[in-house]
């Protein structure tokens, strides 16, 4: 298991060792996470992939201190997740954009800035910057319900980027969008990552998406939720969309598929 944990170095941003988490439900206990260990380095783009119930979202929520693991240790930037949350170490993007309908796009992006006590001028400046980053210049004055689903999700990414946290955690951010919009947003996300050098944790259930985006792909399987494979992507950092037809891409995708199948075999 511990081959996922490399030697600790300056560059380790997130470090999980032997995480355990069990939810009590009416149908008995559900082992959401069991013995999960993983290191994430600065600047990594790590995807978590697996069938529903494999704990990928739970793991992300543990990093964000939205859940508390029952066992094991977890550090973010060398702090506990709770401390990291309070020091605003990460931006979180949910599956639904979750923009407040009573605020404009600019108002929504200002929301975390207001809470964190940025000055007025600073707020305006940052809103302008992130709107540019996600290609939404000129839409700051619109209300969320006046925008398409893809644009709303871009706005919610801008909101997560606004306070310039080191880490970006994304929980199936493009899951509700159609394929064409999703391709476009994937391309934009890669460009954004290249420009900002952020560390990204990305939950998805799409194999092509995971392979296209990531430097590392973490394959997980359910009952109990655990890591079955960690794949280092051999793809270059520059990735045009048609890289998806290359031999290297298909090989990685194949390995992910194998990993998913292996995780399933003694279940069904």
């Amino acid at each position: 298991m511990n081959e996922n944990v490399r030697n600790p170095s300056e560059d380790t941003v997130i470090r999980a060792e032997n995480l355990d988490l069990t939810f009590e439900t009416t149908d008995g206990p559900v082992h959401a996470l069991k013995g999960v260990s993983l290191d994430i380095q600065r600047g990594d783009f790590v995807s978590f992939i697996g069938p529903s119930g494999c704990g990928k979202t739970t793991f992300l929520r543990c990093i964000a201190a939205l859940e508390t693991p029952a066992g094991g240790t977890l550090t973010v930037n060398g702090m506990t997740p709770e401390q990291a949350r309070k020091s605003r170490a990460y931006g979180y993007v949910f599956q639904a954009a979750g923009l407040y309908p009573w605020r404009t796009i600019a108002g929504n992006i200002k929301l975390p800035l207001e809470i964190m006590g940025f000055s007025r001028d600073e707020q305006e400046q940052r809103v302008k910057n992130v709107l540019q980053l996600v290609d939404l210049e000129g839409f700051g004055g619109k209300y969320p319900w006046q925008l398409s689903g893809g644009m709303q999700q871009r706005a919610s990414i801008a909101r997560a980027l606004a306070f310039d946290a080191e880490i970006l955690l994304m929980d199936e951010p493009f899951g509700a969008l159609d394929e064409i919009v999703r391709d476009h947003l994937n391309e934009q996300l890669l460009a954004l990552w290249a420009r900002t050098g952020k560390t990204i944790g990305f939950v998805t259930h799409s194999i092509p998406e995971a392979v296209y985006l990531s430097t590392r792909i973490v394959v997980m399987s359910p009952r109990p939720g655990r890591i079955t494979d960690v794949i280092e992507s051999p793809l270059p950092k520059e990735r045009p969309l048609d890289i998806r037809d290359s031999q290297a891409f298909l090989e990685v995708a194949h390995r992910v598929r194998e990993g998913l199948r292996a995780g399933h075999s003694y279940d069904d």
Binding site: R88, G91, F94, Y100, I115
Partner: peptide, 26 residues
Amino acid sequence: DPMQRDLMRTYGATYGQTLMKLRLPA
């Protein structure tokens, strides 16, 4: 909804901030 409250938590928002910025408008 729980997602919106989680969002406020990721910002480390206080009870008062969550009330004024999210729950009262909603």
